[in-house]
Amino acid sequence: MENENTIRTLKDYFRPSQEGYRNTIEIPDGNNVVPLRFDTIWLLQNGCSFYGLRSEDPNQHLKDFLKLVDAFNLDVENREKMRMRLFLLSLCDQASNWLKSLPAGSISTWEDLTTRFLP
């Protein structure tokens, strides 16, 4: 139990709290066959980024994204988890802000994600 008279420093107030934080995308529990490696994330962010600009086609981004991620050749259950884990890393700027604006835990399947992403 925390004492009400505990002295807190300014540094304590600037430390971010993750209490009550939940991602928009809720990845199902279970084992993930392929761990996320730095080079995988780098390849995704440099070869398959979507910014949400008018000149970008969300359908084409989804096709490019699936071509890259499905190259891992995972079973169905792990393929969906990997897609959901990596998709949020493929979004930048406006597109990332869009995802963050959705309610926490509102996306729990790949179908949920693609339905919301595509116009």
Rank of each mutant, 00 (worst) to 15 (best):
E2T: 11
N5W: 07
T6V: 15
T9R: 13
D12A: 12
D12I: 12
Y13D: 15
F14C: 11
P16E: 08
P16K: 12
S17G: 10
S17H: 11
G20R: 02
G20A: 11
Y21H: 14
R22F: 12
I25Q: 08
N31Q: 13
N32P: 04
V33R: 14
V34I: 10
P35V: 02
R37H: 10
F38Q: 10
Q45C: 03
C48L: 05
C48A: 05
G52P: 03
L53W: 07
R54N: 08
R54E: 11
R54L: 06
R54H: 04
S55T: 04
D57P: 09
N59C: 06
K63A: 12
F65H: 01
K67E: 10
L68M: 14
A71S: 15
A71Y: 06
N73Y: 03
D75S: 04
E80R: 08
K81F: 00
M84P: 03
M84Y: 08
F87E: 00
F87R: 00
L89R: 08
L91C: 03
C92L: 09
D93P: 01
Q94W: 12
A95V: 07
W98N: 07
L99S: 06
K100H: 10
S101W: 02
S101C: 04
L102Q: 08
P103I: 05
E111N: 15
T115D: 07
T115L: 14
R116M: 11
F117Y: 15
L118V: 15
L118M: 12
P119M: 02
